[in-house]
Design a protein around this nucleic acid. Structure first.
Lengths: 176, 176
DNA sequence: GTCTATAGCACGATAGAC
DNA sequence: GTCTATCGTGCTATAGAC
């Protein structure tokens, strides 16, 4: 593989990983192409050699975010649903893991409504994958859907509320 | 009360009610002052006679949205938590009620992270009021927090997912 | 492929007529 | 108080040098 192809691939990967973090943290509108490229140590102009538009980047970054978040949350998690639930609910709480990828399903849950159909399809696939994964821990589809709603709602709320005490009570209450 | 004071009050109320609908539906960034004023049958210039900034409008509209949504959801709901839960989960499903105010806690759940501290405080107060209201139906604080997370997560998801069948299954699964 | 520079547009906010 | 007109700014996207 020639050097320039590797270089291009590495640049694109770097952009995607930076974009995944930024978009999940701030949403589509609050993140400019400039912010993403700066975060990846490049300038605006280089962006369009890799992506055809900002929406294209968002769509691909969503997949990367989902993959990385799953890695993050299921890392060392072999003890069934209770362990998964605990790791998911605590994803934003451990300061040591503060720069890890958080779950795009929860953090982009209202952002996604304003996006184009292709992006919404991607989001929906990610959500369905999450539900299937919960089912694989021994839950029925209905149980998995309800547990997913609770976990996603709790994590989304935990990022939107500022009262640390309330957030702690909320996460404990959802843990069962 | 002189005519012009009444007129001003009515204009402001109209702007607030239109803004509450638009912001809850689309979020802060996707709604321009122009959109709000057009929806209220006025022009951009008149806006600053009533509000000092777009953020000021958003903050006040959030309170109006919470009040109207509560009216909408608790309307004819005297049968305890099960009835509240049913009405809350179905708020976006009945096409006849499609233009009613939906719950800002659920629909602005990720939008609110990017707003200024004053707005986030307002959101937090609204959320705490919602939890207290659930508690008043005979639940403990922990139970109320968990039920709130499930309901809010389910409604937020139901607006973000496009598969009607999946949404229906999700809402039924959360109904108990 | 990456850079600098800029076109083109949309938005928030202000100024001044009525 | 409401209107029209405008300034200033920030953004996406493109053009052209290297």
């Amino acid at each position: 593989m020639p050097w320039d192809v590797t270089h291009k691939t590495k640049s694109k990967e770097k952009i995607l990983i930076c974009a995944a973090k930024l978009f999940v943290e701030k949403g589509f509108d609050a993140v400019g192409i400039n912010d993403v490229m700066k975060s990846a140590n490049m300038t605006r102009g280089a962006f369009y050699a890799h992506f055809k538009s900002k929406a294209d980047l968002y769509n691909q970054a969503l997949v990367v975010a989902a993959f990385k978040a799953r890695e993050n949350i299921t890392h060392g998690c072999d003890q069934g649903f209770a362990s998964l639930q605990h790791n998911y609910l605590q994803q934003g709480q451990d300061p040591a893991l503060k720069d890890n990828q958080q779950c795009p399903i929860a953090l982009l849950i209202s952002d996604i409504r304003q996006r184009e159909p292709l992006v919404r399809e991607t989001y929906e696939k990610v959500f369905k994958g999450f539900v299937k994964f919960i089912e694989s821990q021994g839950l029925t589809e209905a149980e998995a859907l309800k547990e997913a709603a609770t976990m996603i709602g709790a994590v989304a709320l935990s990022e939107s509320l500022t009262d640390k005490n309330l957030v702690e009570k909320l996460l404990v209450a959802c843990q069962r």
